[in-house]
Write a protein that binds this DNA or RNA. Sequence first.
DNA 1: GTGGTGAGTTGACCTTGGTCAAAAGCTCAT
DNA 2: ATGAGCTTTTGACCAAGGTCAACTCACCAC
Lengths: 226, 226
Amino acid sequence: MKTSRLTSNDRAVLLGSRLFANLPAPAAEAVLEGATISRHEAQDVLFHQGDAIEHVFFVVSGLVRLYGTGKGGREADIAVFPRGALFGEKAVFLDQRATAHAQAVHPSIIAKLDGPRLCRLVREEADVAWALLELLCRHGQMTEKRLAEDRLLTAPQRVANYILGQCPGDSPAFTFRLPFQKNVLAGKLGLAPEALSRAFSTLRQSGVIVKGRLIEIRDREALERF
Amino acid sequence: MKTSRLTSNDRAVLLGSRLFANLPAPAAEAVLEGATISRHEAQDVLFHQGDAIEHVFFVVSGLVRLYGTGKGGREADIAVFPRGALFGEKAVFLDQRATAHAQAVHPSIIAKLDGPRLCRLVREEADVAWALLELLCRHGQMTEKRLAEDRLLTAPQRVANYILGQCPGDSPAFTFRLPFQKNVLAGKLGLAPEALSRAFSTLRQSGVIVKGRLIEIRDREALERF
DNA sequence: GTGGTGAGTTGACCTTGGTCAAAAGCTCAT
DNA sequence: ATGAGCTTTTGACCAAGGTCAACTCACCAC
């Protein structure tokens, strides 16, 4: 892992992300001030549970998963962050150590925003505070939704849900490409890879056709009914 | 459900809660301005998924559970809020409808803070923004922790965890009273009541003695090992 | 007391999904 | 094309926990 300054492309990705969408330019610039970039290979661990965190992390490109561990080295994903996502903010704002591990799933470019600086900005710039408040609310809702899903839905239902979440507007049939290995999807949904595979084959009878990473949905209705 | 103004006792509970702990008095007063109180019987539903939410809710006394529903009326608890907890803030800040149902578990006194007013305050008062940011971070971490627990731990392990969480400092043995029915604990832990019961009887062999709502722990070590 | 009600427990059974092992596809470098 | 090293699938098995029903227990009213 090597550290460097932001390229103009990095800046563009950052400024285009949700966090910065409603932030006036000067405030956005202030947030980026002092940010650094690091590159990571797939499987690289960004931090471990218990590590002191002094940055807020931003996925410029690649994919990062956040996971906890149990006995016997078992791992459970807490979240999977695609390009444009922010993480580590909770530990920074609460001035705590990391409560989970973070690992690059793909080769990734990560921007690190200076934690203490960001805390200061939150207190000084109402726009920054508001943007982060919204971001935290969205994160919270996602997590709550996943918790409820885990407790309410079976494996095929969770998969159906995920597929529907990827689907645009209201077309009755569509096709899309998984943005990562099935492996990763399984983790994200809280399933063993084998269970994901079986869930897909259960969904075949509802018009879901899987070829490698390509998912084809023939009958949206049937999926929703599942 | 009837609505009224805050009594001085209500004010005291609010001001003593975590949210207000580090808030200067004028800011705290501003937040409370225009707040109302409502009383609810056990089982009363405060709001349903999909309802428009114009207040942030605060538990002055009693107990409220937040839950989602699946097919066939199955319910899964997302969170259980004791006295002093705040909820509904995510929907308010994102200007969305409720993403879950909320129901009083015990007879409860609920303070309702004016949503739009609070949004305005967040933008005007840095202290308020910061306090809410911290609150959201704590909520988020709790939820993430529960998600990881659900995926990593068996029923007896989750129960052991809960018990240890109730235990003060580092005493090797202690006793405490459940603050609610086992029913509710089961929901909170994502278990059927029967499963909770069985988990308790599994834990007996690790020195956990349950008599009604009274839980006695003889050997903290054994519990942690579980 | 007696009966009633609601919480909690226990047992029997069954579904879901985890685990392990083997087979089947892919991708890529040679 | 060939083989190495993967991801993914499939099959067989098992364990955890949900469900339903019966039973116990505590508490309360009468």
